[in-house]
Amino acid sequence: MKRRTLLSAVFAAFVVLLLGGCSQFGNMNDNPLPEGVEERSIYYWRTTFELNDNELDFLKDHQVKRMYVRLFDVDVNKDTLSSESCVPIGTIVFKSPIPEGIEIVPVVFITPEAILHYEEFIPFLCKRIHAMCKYNGLGDVREVQFDCDWTSSTREDYFQFLREVKEELSSYYSNVSISSTIRLHQLTQDPPDVAYGTLMCYNTGDFRDFNTKNAILDVEDVKPYLGYLKDYPLSLTLALPVFEWDVEFSVDEDFIALNEHQFNFSDTKKFQKTDRENLYKLMENGEVQKYVRNEVVSAKTILKTKKMVEKARKAKMPVTLYHLDSVQLSKYSDNEIEKMYR
């Protein structure tokens, strides 16, 4: 009997634990994550929303339920004829319908220069988000995410912007949540007053610098910020990079351009290896024309980073991959993608 009682107690404790922790994701912050955030998600950052079969398959195969779609950027107005201080640029064009079962979270990127003028554009911004979502049938909007590389000098403006934008958006959507991206360097400061933050574990280095090994993600660049994670007073999700780019430099090692990956480095007539693993010389008539640094992050590095971050946070974090592009995603196996999401 005693033994049965003990077993029952152990079982009960297990059930309590199971129910109490029905979310697989721990949370250092008292605020729970808004509904749906724990679903598998991915960013969509291109200027044309057009999904091919591979991309549709990806969403289906990996049970992705949320897509963070960048609608447009906000930048200061370069047109001197106009009196508008800030304008939307790079607006996405929707050519494909939204796949069934996918929730869209509109994302707007705001440049640090533009955020200083937030008071002038908040009503327009919200009206535009609403118009775009309505016009393109993006469904019920439960959340809007903002992305801004704020620093200590622009922090107050950005935080105030987030407060005011939530109020303005409420006139279009009841109970809308606001989330914000969080860059690693922003972990050193107080967090914004939002439902949660998405920690961007990419763009960790300066791509303009010839000596940077990998500007997309270098574990060494993440390490200095791990100490801030444990007590960071905002619920966090984790964004991981699954993209590739080529950075071009002149023979004098000056930055030229950053492009989507386009070169075939296996063409040895055109490209010569250097002593750096991902750096190539682009040759023409036997002369070096420029250097090209190919940057892509291996699944191993991504998983190592994820593990490191979650360990420092002492919790598992919902993952959002950056970003949906079948060509780039094809570099990772299904198994690797699954490990990233788990």
């Binding site: 508008e84 304008v87 939307p88 607006t91 327009f124 535009r128 118009a131 309505k134 016009y135």
Partner: peptide
Amino acid sequence: NWMMSSWYYPEEV
């Protein structure tokens, strides 16, 4: 004014 601003986006399909 809304329509003449750079922020304009048609609402109706």
